[in-house]
């Protein structure tokens, strides 16, 4: 067995000790994980982004226009001193403004209009009534009404929004079912590593 598998196995078990309760072994593994993850992110951001689209084109190819994002980026460091912290608003303004500007048409088209269009379909196709189309229509309208808070949820409107809650519960239940599946899969993956690669109990 190679040293990498032994280390991975020991660290996996160290994390699993948390199931009993918080302890120094888990805390050691957790601290190491935090450090290594941060170090990893720094390396990837530096080598595949800052070097790739900023420093190399600026220093090697002389793309002087890149001085602007460089200065904006450096302004982010002003946050560490209370007297200069407000300067970091400028690069944040670039990101917030750009994001908001491009989000309006995209959200309108891709998230709102396309979803609304998909909700409306023929209730009768080829002479047969399509119950599922009606379910989707009722589901979307009643759930939307539940999230409409500008009017009191009482009377007819209250009953409609109540129907919406049942649709929401079906959605949450379905999502819960799939989430259980997901979490079990992750644990099964780790058990496969422990039983096969680390302990050699299974092949």
């Amino acid at each position: 067995m190679d040293i990498g598998t032994i280390i991975a196995g020991v660290l996996t078990l160290a994390i699993l000790t948390f199931l009993y309760r918080d302890n120094p072994i888990y805390k050691f593994a957790e601290s190491l994980l935090i450090g290594v993850s941060i170090g990893y992110t720094l390396v990837i951001v530096w080598s595949t982004t800052l070097m790739d689209i900023l420093f190399r084109p600026l220093l090697n190819a002389g793309q002087l226009a890149l001085v602007v994002p460089l200065v904006l980026g450096l302004l982010m460091f002003s946050r560490f001193h209370p007297r200069t912290a407000s300067l970091s608003r400028l690069p944040i303004a670039v990101m917030i403004g750009s994001g908001a500007g491009v989000a309006i048409p995209v959200m309108l088209e891709a998230r709102t209009l396309r979803q609304m269009t998909a909700t409306v379909g023929p209730l009768v196709s080829d002479g047969t009534f399509d119950f599922s189309v009606l379910v989707v229509l009722v589901g979307v309208l009643t759930t939307l009404s539940y999230f409409y808070f500008s009017r009191e949820h009482e009377g007819f409107f209250g009953r409609v929004s109540k129907v919406g809650t049942y649709f929401l519960m079906i959605f949450f239940g379905t999502t819960f079912g799939y989430t259980v599946m997901s979490r079990m899969s992750t644990f099964i993956g780790r058990m496969e590593f422990l039983l096969t690669d680390f302990l050699h109990i299974t092949k």
């Binding site: 989000a103 709102t112 599922s132 379910v135 989707v136 589901g139 979307v140 649709f167």
Partner: peptide, 29 residues
């Protein structure tokens, strides 16, 4: 159940988020 009733509730949530994002983006700009 996943493709119709559950999906319709998720779709309503998506539409709500979409409308909310548009309004927030406008307010930010």
């Amino acid at each position: 159940m996943r493709n119709y009733p559950s999906m319709s509730a998720r779709r309503a949530i998506l539409i709500g988020i979409g409308l909310g994002s548009i309004t927030t983006s406008l307010r930010v700009i």
